[in-house]
C-alpha cells in the first residue's frame, strides 16, 4: 500500500519545489545570521577599549573625557534608562486605556477612524517628532519647570520621555488593540452572565487573559524607546551628567553615538569607545527582549 502511494517526483515541479525550499531556508539563515554578525563586528571593534580598561571600570565610570582617555558610561546608561522609563510611564497606561476603550466601549466605526490615525503617527519620520519636540514640548517643559520653581531650558529627559512616548504609542496601541480584539466574546459573556459589571469583566478577566500580550506590547514600546535616536537627541539636552530631576538634561547612548561618530579626531580609543556604546545598547536591548520573553511566556494562558 505504502509503496503504491509513493509518488515519483521528477520533472520541473520537483525542481521548483526544491529551489523554493532552499530559497526560503537561505532567507531564514540570513535573518538569523545578521544579529550575530553585528554583535561580532561591534565586539571586535570595541576590543581595544576592553583591553585597555576593565569592563567594570567602563560601565561604572562616571567621567567622560576622551582626550584624557576616560570613558565612563554610567551617565549614558542612566540617561537611556531614565528617558525610556519616563516614556513607558507615559505611553503604557495611555495606550492600555485607549485600547480598552476602542475595543470594548466605542462603536465599531470608531476603530476604522483610529487605524489611519495610528498609521499616520507611526509613519511620521523621527526627525519631525524631534522638531515638534523642540517647538512645542521644550517650551511646555520649561514652563512646567518654572511652575515648580526650577529653572530649566526645557531640554531635558522629561522632554525626551514625552517625545518618545508619543512616538512609541502607535506601535504599542496597535498591538494592544489586536490583543483585545482577539479576546473571545464568549469569555466576556461568561463573566457578564455571572453578574460582573463591564469594568469588573475587564479588570478580572480580559486584563488577565491578555496579560502576556499586554506585556509583549509594552516590551515593544521599551525596545522602541531604548533605540530611538534622532528625536530624543534633539530634545534631551545631551549633557554628560546624572540628572537630579526630570527637568535636567541627560545623554542617552544612541545620542552619544550619533553626536560623536565621525568626529573622533584620531583621539585614541574614542572610536572603540563609541563601538562599545553601540555594543552596550545592543546587549541592553537583547537582554531586555529575553527578559520580557520570559515573563510573556510565564503569563501565557
Amino acid at each position: 500500500m505504502i509503496s503504491a502511494l509513493k509518488i515519483k517526483q521528477t520533472g520541473s515541479r520537483f525542481w521548483v519545489d526544491r529551489i523554493s525550499t532552499t530559497w526560503m531556508l537561505a532567507g531564514l539563515f540570513f535573518i538569523l545570521v545578521v544579529p550575530f554578525a553585528i554583535f561580532l563586528g561591534l565586539l571586535i571593534k570595541a576590543l581595544p577599549l576592553l583591553y585597555d580598561q576593565s569592563l567594570w571600570a567602563i560601565l561604572s565610570g562616571t567621567e567622560w573625557s576622551p582626550m584624557r582617555g576616560n570613558f565612563g558610561f554610567l551617565p549614558f546608561i542612566v540617561g537611556s534608562v531614565l528617558v525610556t522609563v519616563l516614556a513607558v510611564c507615559f505611553s503604557a497606561p495611555t495606550s492600555l486605556m485607549a485600547a480598552i476603550y476602542i475595543t470594548q466601549f466605542a462603536p465599531k466605526r470608531f476603530l476604522k477612524l483610529v487605524h489611519p490615525v495610528i498609521d499616520i503617527l507611526a509613519g511620521i519620520p523621527s526627525v519631525i517628532y524631534g522638531v515638534w519636540g523642540v517647538l512645542t514640548i521644550i517650551p511646555l517643559v520649561a514652563g512646567l519647570a518654572s511652575w515648580f520653581g526650577i529653572s530649566s531650558t526645557g531640554y531635558s529627559i522629561l522632554a525626551g520621555g514625552i517625545v518618545l512616548a508619543v512616538m512609541s504609542t502607535p506601535y504599542v496601541l496597535n498591538m494592544l488593540i489586536e490583543v483585545f480584539r482577539s479576546m473571545p466574546i464568549g469569555l466576556k459573556e461568561a463573566s457578564l452572565s455571572l453578574g460582573s459589571t463591564y469594568w469588573e469583566c475587564i479588570k478580572h478577566v480580559l486584563l488577565r487573559k491578555g496579560l502576556s500580550g499586554i506585556l509583549a506590547a509594552f516590551a515593544l514600546g521599551v525596545s522602541n524607546a531604548l533605540g530611538n535616536t534622532i528625536a530624543v537627541l534633539m530634545v534631551v539636552g545631551n549633557r554628560v551628567q546624572f540628572p537630579s530631576n526630570v527637568f535636567e538634561a541627560g545623554y542617552p547612548i544612541p545620542a552619544l553615538i550619533a553626536n560623536n561618530y565621525g568626529e573622533m579626531m584620531s583621539i585614541p580609543l574614542y572610536d572603540s569607545a563609541l563601538m562599545f556604546a553601540a555594543l552596550l545598547l545592543f546587549v541592553m536591548v537583547t537582554f531586555f527582549n529575553f527578559a520580557s520573553r520570559y515573563f510573556i511566556q510565564k503569563y501565557e494562558v
Binding site: 473571545p184 464568549g186 469569555l187 459573556e189
Partner: peptide
Amino acid sequence: GLLSQRPYPLPM
C-alpha cells in the same frame, strides 16, 4: 447561569 456552546473558563 449561562452554559455556552464551548466552555470558557476564566483565566484563573
